[in-house]
Design a binder for these strands. Structure first.
Lengths: 357, 357
DNA sequence: AGCATGTGAACAATCGATTGTTCAACCGTT
DNA sequence: AACGGTTGAACAATCGATTGTTCACATGCT
């Protein structure tokens, strides 16, 4: 293919492989009888150059006839942009991450970007993952959504030289964070329990040294205060974000001295699931003997027994806003994209009930 | 390169932006005092060209000193390969898809490929998604894992001209399918129930016109036959792959005339979850009154009440094999990659028990 | 010594699209 | 009719890496 046979030469003989080797801009130019640069300017509607109406029409017709699609790779090389974003997640099977990815993918798709996914193996450092993604020049920006409370994370991210947005975690030195208003969500959950008459409300907390865990715990305390309920630290147990953590924490609560709580506010559906299994095993009936509510709705909530009352959080939208904001950043449309998303709504299922004193 | 300014020129002034603008092959060549083509041949250990040992050393040193990473985009343009695979999924929050993606990502990463993810919006045709991925010249191959029983799917895929591998679905005309041995898994599940003394075993089936639904149903029938249990069609209800489908099917089973089944074999954990909620509501205790087993283990199984006995299926490995095989295909290392993966093992939890007649 | 051979590395084209620059044709003006 | 100005489009360089070809020099041989 030494001498431009690629443009006209191929088109004539390539019917058999038409689906495989796509038309290039040179093919379109040849068909329209113009220079490739003119085609480029017409198709990207470059205002720096005027083009006669009928030339424009010829080009557009040729492009359509050949089903021309610009080659993203070539464009990327020239523009030094990949038109793709990277996201790395520690666990794909956690619905929270799944929904965040789904939102991010939607935003990327709408804006003509691709979403590149990477899994952070347990034990591996996420910094290494971001490093790899950026070193290969494969992404223009990174979405960062990890459970890890890594002090070095931000430093590592900045060293990659690639713009990034943090999801579901606020770090003081980083402006671009999209977070859920966990505090407001906690208020909503506690308000619901209080409205049902509960006052001895326990909290299955997340990681108290992490952003979300701390926020949810703070919201819990604030809500108690607002309802003039004394805060009892023995009613708070860290459960992490796993079912077994929730189970362990629930057992701790049950074996505690003093009157049993009449309601549980769990930081996540997953830990609530663990708690429910312990309650079943202890023959404590939900919601007759104890009410349970958790933050963040997911398909799992509906499947538990009893179906779990939750405060729904806009996780899909968090992913959407994160990706969309990151693209704004990359395209210079905005300088910072931080925002806090309020909880969606309370979804009352069968795990909470009026206190029967 | 008219006058090498890009190579040496930049390096001298770019300390501030060092992290952003990476070294190119021209930079390495300049530093080693050789031609870029020589650098390329040394770094890709091209056997077609011999290079003196000390030249080789100079180049390797320069590359290391500059922390040179080949630009994937440029390489892609030249090679007409993107070194990335696409995968499209209908629901990200279904753990089955999540695990398949995780496996695919692992394989891709190990082989130096990226995984590009796309979500198929409900109601949208997956064909359109694959079309889009391939049109943008963004992927070398596609992993196809959909629930849809789309007759036109294969045609649409072939029209993209991009090699593909089907996951979790066998289609006669397609050689490259990685599937789970649903039939063997069904045997395992039924065997377990029979070993506990059950003989009136109902089946919450998937979609009977889909590959997996049909296979699981066939396996169920075969296993019954092997145990000399008469097949009773009224004990089979299609439940699809949702919790509400499982609930509806379970209600149908309970309202059926004739003796109640003593055990349920559900095609999926999700439909089993729906069934469990109906059983709870009807005050039928599991496993005392009825045993329940489902195919494919997931984190959800552990969270249900009671924790669900399952036959674990190698879904992560399915994704791994799919991606790995697809790359073999692309690199000409293999011509076909079909395989059937046997079920992993039976995981006995609390939802199945000895029949107490 | 002279010619054929071989070795090591530079040269240059290429992938497909974008964009700064050049240039020819045409217009109206004096 | 000559000239300045505008318009429309071609020309050519570029992004970074790969690879077929060329070429200078050193070596071997008779």
């Amino acid at each position: 293919m030494s001498k431009l046979t690629s443009a006209s030469g191929r088109k004539k003989t390539a019917d058999a492989t038409a689906a495989i080797s796509r038309a290039t801009i040179a093919d379109v130019a040849a068909a329209a009888g113009v220079d490739p640069s003119t085609v480029s300017r017409v198709l990207s509607s470059d205002p720096a150059q005027r083009v006669r109406e009928d030339t424009k029409r010829r080009i557009l017709n040729a492009a359509q006839a050949l089903n021309y699609q610009p080659n993203v790779i070539a464009r990327s090389l020239r523009a030094a942009k990949t038109y793709s974003l990277g996201i790395a997640v520690p666990q794909l099977d956690n619905p929270v991450f799944a929904m965040a990815i789904q939102g991010a993918e939607r935003a990327a798709r709408e804006r003509g970007y691709s979403l590149l996914i990477s899994h952070i193996e347990p034990g591996a450092s996420d910094a290494a993952v971001y490093q790899r993604m950026s070193e290969l020049n494969r992404v223009d920006g990174l979405l960062v959504a990890t459970l890890e409370t890594d002090r070095e994370l931000v430093g590592a991210l900045e060293r990659t030289g690639v713009p990034f947005v943090l999801l579901n975690r606020r770090i003081a030195s980083v402006a671009n964070c999209i977070v859920l208003d966990s505090r407001a969500a906690a208020h909503k959950a506690v308000d619901h329990l209080v409205s049902l008459g509960h006052r001895r409300i326990a909290h299955l907390a997340g990681h108290l040294d992490g952003f979300n865990g701390a926020e949810r715990f703070a919201g819990y305390k604030e809500a108690l205060l607002r309802h003039k309920i004394a805060f009892d630290p023995t009613l708070v147990v860290a459960a992490g974000y796993t079912a077994s953590g929730g189970a362990t924490a629930m057992r701790a609560l049950l074996s505690r001295n003093g009157p049993k709580p009449t309601a549980i506010f769990a930081a996540t559906v997953v830990s609530a699931a663990g708690a429910l299994s312990v309650l079943h095993a202890a023959d404590i009936e939900v919601p007759r003997d104890i009410s349970v509510i958790a933050l963040h709705d997911s398909i799992i909530a509906e499947m538990l027994f009893p179906p779990l009352t939750t405060v729904q959080l806009p996780v899909e939208e968090m992913g959407y806003r994160g990706a969309s904001g990151l693209i704004d950043l990359l395209e210079g449309k905005r300088d910072d994209v931080g925002c806090t998303l309020p909880p969606d709504r309370l979804i009352v299922r069968a795990s909470t009930a009026e206190l029967n004193s």
